[in-house]
Every structure is written in C-alpha cells, then in structure tokens.
C-alpha cells in the first residue's frame, strides 16, 4: 500500500489554473478575431503564430507542469524538437522549389 503522505508544498492552488484557463480563452478568441476581421498577409501569419505559440507555451508550461519539472526533463523533451526545425525548413525549401518548377514549366492554362 502506498503511503498517502502528500507534501503540502507539492500542490498549487486552483487559482493559477483558472488564470491560465482564462488566458487560453483570450488567446483563442484573439486569433479568431484575426480571422474574423480578415486581416491578411504577414500581419495575419505573425499574429496567428504568436497567439499559437503563446497558447502552446501556456499549456505545456502550466497544464503539463513542465515549468516545475527539473531541467533534465525539460531539456530531454525540448532538444529533440530541434530535428523538426531541420525538417520544417527543408520541406518548406523544397515546396517552394517544386512550386516554382511547376509554375515555370507546367500548367493547363496559357502563361
């Protein structure tokens, strides 16, 4: 039988989670507003990316409690994601190239 001796300092008041919850709502709503008002081009992408990353950071840091984990775990989780950076840039680079090849040499309409 496990000893049920929860140390008091291992818990957080529920308040923090409500604050984060509110922030998630706000950020979702803000990114929706960007789409609602039809902001286009670079402002749209940058705003949406910022809201997206902020939301993701809040979930990972507070809800998934990574902020309270020791650095060894944080590092082990974040470092492999760097491989994705290589993959993202490579695929983007490639997609632009293939698209330009198609634009230059192919297509069913008159140029």
């Amino acid at each position: 039988m496990t000893p049920a001796t929860p140390a008091v300092d291992r818990q957080h008041s529920g308040r923090l989670f409500f604050v984060v919850w509110a922030w998630l709502f706000a950020l979702s709503f803000l990114s929706w507003l960007v789409a609602y008002f039809g902001i286009a081009g670079i402002p749209r992408w940058s705003l949406i990316s910022v809201f997206m990353l902020a939301k993701a950071a809040l979930i990972v840091a507070v809800f998934m409690r990574l902020a309270w984990e020791r650095l060894a775990l944080v590092f082990a989780i974040v470092a492999p994601l760097l491989a994705l950076v290589a993959f993202i840039s490579a695929l983007n680079f490639e997609a632009v190239y293939i698209h330009s090849q198609r634009e230059n040499y192919q297509g069913v309409k008159a140029p």
Partner: peptide, 19 residues
C-alpha cells in the same frame, strides 16, 4: 522516510517504489 522535496510538484517515485 519522506524527504521534503522543495519546489517539486506532483507525485514522487519514492512514494511508491514498491514495484
């Protein structure tokens, strides 16, 4: 013996390392 683990959150393996 339960250590005081300052600043650590959640469950601790020592609580149930009787696998």
């Amino acid at each position: 013996m339960v250590e005081v683990r300052a600043g650590e959150e959640g469950f601790h393996p020592d609580d149930f390392e009787d696998e």
